[in-house]
Design a protein around this nucleic acid. Structure first.
Lengths: 211, 211
DNA sequence: GTCTATAAGAGGATAGAC
DNA sequence: GTCTATCCTCTTATAGAC
């Protein structure tokens, strides 16, 4: 058979194939050290395999990196929060806002963001994969919520403005919180909660339904 | 004398000391390749000096990198736009907004941002220097404008909200434009101008002076 | 301060046995 | 597919002459 066989768990509890083992090790090493500073030796050691085995599964360092990024982007950004039943625009927006903020300041998301930005000029596909898995999905999810709230008469966002307003809203949420988190600086005194509150306020002042 | 002497122009037209020459070369090499992938050989070649000369001026690769980042952050983010005389809040905000957006999407600012984010977890001082030279200054500048506009009765931002509103406004401006630019993706169909317009609209809907 | 030359080692990738 | 051992290049940093 051409597919790799199962292997005893080499990095954790669940049994993983060598392929998965290598990807998991690559994630740790690349996200900790950055692409260039990460060595194939370090990945091999972390995965408990030989370097030659890595090259049997991935053409070269770059291919391993791209495969890892692709897999992690999907996993990390797949869940932006389930749509709940709601009758109040503020509550629905707040819930999604908090979910979004907690997602983008999670350590793994930040580490991926950093390494993707760093290599984007030299590895365009990596930047595109990240953008499609993260920002595009978030935009679509929030935009859909605005459309739904407007259809129900709970907001008043014209169709032609939905995309623009979504961008502004997500920008407000990220505000300085995201920048500081990416720079590895301690969180601001203002909590995620108060930023989310203020962003929703600003949004509703302009696009709330006329009572 | 202990200070390095003047040297013939080695990288451009104006005469530069070897020290400046090395810093200029380091900027190009580090910003193009990233910290780890950049080599001291490449810097030496670009500066037209020997590697040994670099080590006479800077203790090691890391020190050279930090010196370069420090110098470039100061130079790149020093000018966020001169305060003009204004009688209209919208016009003043728009002017500053456009200046800010054009500054953060400039190729050099993007390159610095990428490399600083990439190394921030391992070189904390670099992240702090960048934050102090860029985001802190922008925040102070915009916050001062809000205060001034409010004092003149052209806006209504309570003192206790100034910092928070500044964060939200800057976040709206960056919106998706900054993320896309950092990822080296082609600019969005929406122009910088329309994002700035919309952000000012949203802001004035909530914090405009009551007419 | 500046150079040439080189030490000392890390890192990507492969050969060949099993 | 997997391993051990190795090739060879590139890289940081320094020694020693001027």
């Amino acid at each position: 058979m051409s597919r790799p066989k199962k292997a005893a768990a080499c990095c954790g509890d669940a049994p993983m194939t060598k392929h998965q083992c290598i990807l998991a090790a690559a994630q740790e090493v690349f996200l900790e050290a950055g692409y260039a500073a990460a060595s194939m030796d370090a990945v091999a050691a972390r995965a408990n395999v030989s370097k030659a085995t890595i090259y049997a599964h991935f053409e070269n360092k770059r291919a391993l990196f791209e495969a890892m990024i692709s897999a992690r982007c999907e996993a990390t950004f797949s869940d932006l929060g389930v749509p709940e039943a709601y009758t109040d625009a503020r509550q629905a927006l707040l819930e999604l806002a908090l979910h979004f903020l907690n997602l983008i300041v999670a350590p793994e998301a930040l580490a991926i963001h950093r390494v993707v930005l760093a290599e984007a000029p030299r590895l365009p596909e990596v930047g595109e994969a990240f953008y499609a898995a993260g920002p595009i999905r978030a935009h679509a999810r929030i935009g859909a919520l605005f459309s739904d709230l407007t259809r129900r008469g709970l907001m008043a966002v014209p169709d032609c403005d939905t995309s623009l307003v979504t961008d502004l809203f997500l920008g407000m949420l990220k505000s300085d919180i995201h920048t500081r988190a990416l720079l590895n600086l301690p969180p601001n005194e203002r909590s995620i909660q108060s930023i989310a509150d203020a962003a929703v306020d600003m949004l509703m002042a302009r696009y709330g339904a006329k009572a």
